[in-house]
Amino acid sequence: MPGTFEGETVNRRRFMNLVTNGAGGVAAVAITLPVLGFAAGPIFSRVPFEWQTIGMPADFPKSTYQTRVVEIVQGIGEAGKTTAYVRARDPSIDTEPEDQYNQFVALSSRCMHLGCPVRFVAAAERFICPCHGGVYDFRGMVAGGPPVRPLDRFYTRLKDGYVQIGPRYSVNSELRRFSPRDPGEPLDGVGQYLYPARFSTSQIPQS
């Protein structure tokens, strides 16, 4: 190799090139990686959820929905609140398996097309979305329009004589429970594999 003494494999110029480029690369990585991790961190941190008391059992009849405002993100006022539609479980129409978390049916107002807020129209016994015409029946199953799965639900429980509302969960068209997914993500068939559970959502209570 030119510029080297007998037996040398690296000359001065090449050594300095390696050291300078290497040091620059290490410096760039040492800045970039922590910053990217900092920005992506919320993907991996689990958000806790507290049970919130929403009323007495007598407040929630079987035949219609009561509206309750639930805080899902603390500290940002109105932007952190969402609406839940709550009624008592009616065994004649609610065919999914009964357990301690669904004595009261609490539906999320988040439309499962793209996330607009649905409204319960009592006269039609339908949930109707103002954005793109999604329609759900009394149980929250898709009755028409673009939504890809039934309305999400909240875990509910009876505690010391009060009805409490817990974390949100998603359901497929057979009302099988899944950890909460975003709207627009189907859970039937291959959908549950295309849209995996996220690290950030709260743990499902075991049923």
Binding site: V73, G80, R198, S200
Partner: peptide, 17 residues
């Protein structure tokens, strides 16, 4: 997609940041 949404929102829901 689900992780991209979490990245954009900085969490599973529209949050403080």
């Amino acid at each position: 997609g689900p992780f991209l949404s979490d990245f954009l929102r900085a969490g599973p829901e529209f949050g403080a940041t």
